[in-house]
Amino acid sequence: AAAPPPAPRSRRPHWVTELGHQSHDAWERALASLRFVGELVLAFGRLLRGRSDMRGADFAWQLDQCGPRSVPIVSLVCALVGLIVAYMGAVQLARFGAQVFIADLVTIGVVREIAPLITAVILSGRVGAAFAAQIGSMVAAEEVDALRTLGIAPVDHLALPRVLALAVVTPLLAAYGAIVAMLMGGLVAVAIFGVEPLAYLNNSERALAVEHVAIGLVKAACYGVLVGIAGCRQGLAAGRSAQAVGAATTKSVVQSIVWIVIAASGLTVLFQRLGW
């Protein structure tokens, strides 16, 4: 008997084909994110008109989960970052005998850039991942389908209170983290480099202008909204298995950090161009 013909070997697609598929998938993900942002904007409009399915109790619960429970980790990380910034800056300033300007370096850098960025990254891992896991588990358990059956919009009921809670809490946590970082920087300047405490306080007060505080708070609010959008979007787009929920949690952290870095770069360039 004749031998059976060999099975055809699977050919790997050409690299141009793979690039096309990846580009198409990236475009589809970008469109899905834009659609979700549009749904959130419409949900916020319904909230302003008093026609939203969002409950005040859910918003208060998310405020408690995102804010007070994040204070310990924000305190620890911001204190260590303030120590690093003060020490590294003081080493360079000490060459010129200008250790007193540590206060200016720490105050402006922490308030404008570092505290909002570090706080948002912390919340992306602690809160954004929790949002994706919670909503993804509800998708897997068909609870989101039950909400739609009852005529309740999942974006209004699940995503809107979480995003609003992060928009409110993130600037407060960033302001608290900036204070902690400045105190730690003052401790380094006074205890290690011999700066007078009163001189450090005076320089910090002079450097802490209103525009620096406003820019830091605006950046923190923007980062918080991005973290909430990434977590809720990945949670609602998760599959109906435990593996899919885990993948959605990982994607939410990665996506939120990428968005935060892009937003930080764009806002920094924009404010510098405007002379702020």
Rank of each mutant, 00 (worst) to 15 (best):
Ala7Gln: 08
Arg11Asp: 15
Glu18Lys: 04
Leu19Tyr: 10
Leu19Thr: 08
Gly20Ala: 15
Ala26Trp: 13
Trp27Glu: 11
Ala30Cys: 11
Leu31Asn: 09
Val37His: 05
Leu40Ile: 07
Val41Glu: 07
Val41Cys: 07
Phe44Ala: 10
Gly45Phe: 02
Gly45Lys: 06
Leu48Gly: 11
Arg51Ala: 11
Arg51Leu: 03
Ser52Ala: 12
Asp53Phe: 00
Met54Glu: 06
Arg55His: 10
Ala57Leu: 06
Ala57Met: 01
Asp58Val: 03
Phe59Ala: 03
Trp61Thr: 08
Leu63Trp: 00
Asp64Ala: 14
Gln65Ser: 13
Cys66Ala: 12
Gly67Ser: 15
Gly67Thr: 03
Arg69Phe: 05
Val71Pro: 00
Val74His: 02
Leu76Lys: 00
Cys78Glu: 01
Ala79Met: 06
Ala79Gly: 09
Val81Lys: 00
Ile84Glu: 06
Val85Ala: 15
Val85Pro: 09
Ala86Gln: 00
Ala86Trp: 00
Phe96Ser: 15
Gly97Gln: 11
Gly97Arg: 08
Gln99Leu: 07
Ile102Gly: 01
Thr107His: 10
Ile108Asp: 09
Val110Gln: 03
Val110Ala: 02
Ile114His: 09
Ile114Asn: 05
Pro116Asp: 00
Pro116Val: 05
Ile118Leu: 07
Ile118Thr: 13
Thr119Tyr: 11
Thr119Ile: 04
Ala120Phe: 07
Ile122Tyr: 03
Phe131Leu: 13
Phe131Val: 03
Ala140Ile: 01
Glu143Val: 02
Glu143Thr: 08
Arg148His: 15
Pro154Thr: 01
Asp156His: 06
Leu158Glu: 02
Pro161Ala: 07
Arg162Ser: 10
Val163Gln: 10
Val163Ile: 15
Val163Arg: 14
Leu164Thr: 04
Leu164Ser: 03
Ala165Gly: 04
Ala167Phe: 09
Ala167Val: 06
Thr170Ile: 03
Leu173His: 14
Ala174Trp: 07
Ala175Met: 13
Val180Tyr: 03
Val180Thr: 14
Leu183Lys: 02
Met184Glu: 04
Gly185Phe: 02
Gly185Lys: 02
Gly185Ile: 01
Gly186Arg: 00
Ala191Asn: 08
Ile192Pro: 01
Glu196Gly: 08
Leu198Asp: 12
Leu198Thr: 13
Tyr200Pro: 10
Leu201Glu: 07
Asn202Ile: 01
Asn203Gln: 06
Glu205Trp: 07
Arg206Val: 10
Ala207Gly: 14
Val210Glu: 06
Leu217Phe: 10
Ala220Thr: 01
Cys222His: 09
Cys222Tyr: 05
Tyr223Asp: 10
Tyr223Trp: 04
Val225Leu: 14
Cys232Gly: 04
Cys232Ala: 12
Leu236Cys: 01
Leu236Gly: 03
Ala237Lys: 02
Ala238Asp: 02
Ala238Gln: 00
Ser241Gln: 11
Ala242Phe: 13
Ala244Asn: 08
Val245Lys: 01
Gln255Phe: 04
Gln255Val: 07
Val258Arg: 04
Trp259Val: 01
Val261Gln: 01
Val261Ser: 02
Val261Gly: 00
Val261Lys: 00
Ile262Trp: 04
Ile262Asn: 08
Ala263Cys: 12
Leu267Phe: 09
Val269Ala: 13
Phe271Trp: 05
Phe271Ser: 12
Phe271Arg: 08
Arg273Met: 06
